[in-house]
Amino acid sequence: MATLEVQGVGKSFGGYTALEDIGLSLDAGSIMGVIGPNGAGKSTLINIISGFLKPDTGTVKINGKDITGKAPYRVFKSGIARTFQDSQVFGYMTGLENVMVSAPWGIGVQEYNVLARPFAVAREEKQKREEAMAHLAQVNITDKARSMAQALSYGQQKLLEFARMLNSRANVFLLDEPMAGIHPDLVDGLKALIVAMAKEHNKAVILVEHNLKVVMEMSDYVTVIRNSVLLSGTPDAVSKDERLAGAFLGVTDATA
């Protein structure tokens, strides 16, 4: 049984069909690259899987459990975490708090424990803080732990998002163009991190990118979409397929 399974997903906005009959499946420890030109419906797909949009047709399952159309916070609780294409942070919380917030587990979540077991809650807090600091360290922004997220640069905010996701204990990561806007010096580190998440931490990763080269390098499988699935397979197989060029026809940034 695949960790994440998407079947026959379709979505229209008004009269415009953004997605049609999308299917893909993904196992723990592997990276699925999803590519397609701008407007292909990649973000829409991520939004459907993460519960931000309800699909018109089709199902989304995690470990065999149907989560189609569930509210985003329920999807998160079933083990799917995501980042956003345009960076999203809690602007008026510190870097550390931004990371810690994605750990809604433990006794601190039960409000009465705050009153009934304040010391246990405090111990748990300490543990959560250390964990969050470790994740900030993984993306090299420990120096931003005390800064308001709003004051960080765009690239730093994206890294912060990453750390937040790492902290979430989710099994499936949905990454919507994680490299966009990141300082070139940091891109390699980030790529290594994504690969490590899959290979060392056994996460299932969906990597949405419009940069063909990057995806081919990193992914175990690639799905090319342009409103519907055009091609899928290993990077090798896909890059040799002559239909690939057609997918990006009329789009200038195909290999940029």
Binding site: S50, F52, K77, F90, G91, V109, E125
Partner: peptide, 20 residues
């Protein structure tokens, strides 16, 4: 954690949904 959750909703309600 509750406090952070409250502040998260205050700060960015949509993003808050995505962290459960």
């Amino acid at each position: 954690q509750w406090g952070r959750m409250i502040r998260a909703v205050a700060s960015n309600p949509e993003l808050a949904l995505s962290v459960g």
